[in-house]
Amino acid sequence: MNIFRLIGDMSHLLAIILLLLKMWKTRSCAGISGKSQILFALVFASRYLDLFTSFVSVYNSVMKIFFISTSLLTVYLMYFKFRATYDSNHDTFRVEFLVIPVGGLAFLVNHEFSPLEILWTFSIYLESVAILPQLFMMSKTGEAETITSHYLFALGSYRALYILNWVYRYYFEGFFDLIAVVAGCVQTILYCDFFYLYITKVLKGKRITLPA
């Protein structure tokens, strides 16, 4: 554990809590892509199956259980409890165009051709693009609530901090995982446009609005 990973994990945790708080306080999931949230639930469910096969640390297990359960809770809140507020008309990204190619790639490019390993690879690839339905939705509506922007900033920062963690681990532990690093870089690049808007607008007290 190094400082980058710790802050990265905390940022990820903060993102999830922010999203749940936003939905709970406003009793609404307006502006949130249910498709991205389903993809995140799928990411966690396929990656953390190793909860049953290997124990790493209490921290590791607690975080994994937290991520799986909160992602399922988020999906439940969006599609059941607050369904009336879900903006499905704007959430029209075709997720099969992500899941099918990513599934194929996980079969072809992985560290080991075994079920758990392929599922882990699938989750890493899927996570890197899972935010696309959310970004697509924002570009369609042309705006984002400030709390949604904070959520996305925390969520995007987490993988950027993991890149610093991988640089650190490469130099000080000789550890390097090409699949995670490439996918993590792709994931972070997808957020760059949003990061720019966040820094130039939200941090100056304005909402994110995009030209039509």
Binding site: M1, D9, H12, N60, M63, E112, E117, N165, F175, D177
Partner: peptide, 10 residues
């Protein structure tokens, strides 16, 4: 193997 080490990442 290296991917044992990887298991501690989230």
């Amino acid at each position: 193997k290296d991917w044992i080490k990887r298991k501690d990442e989230l």
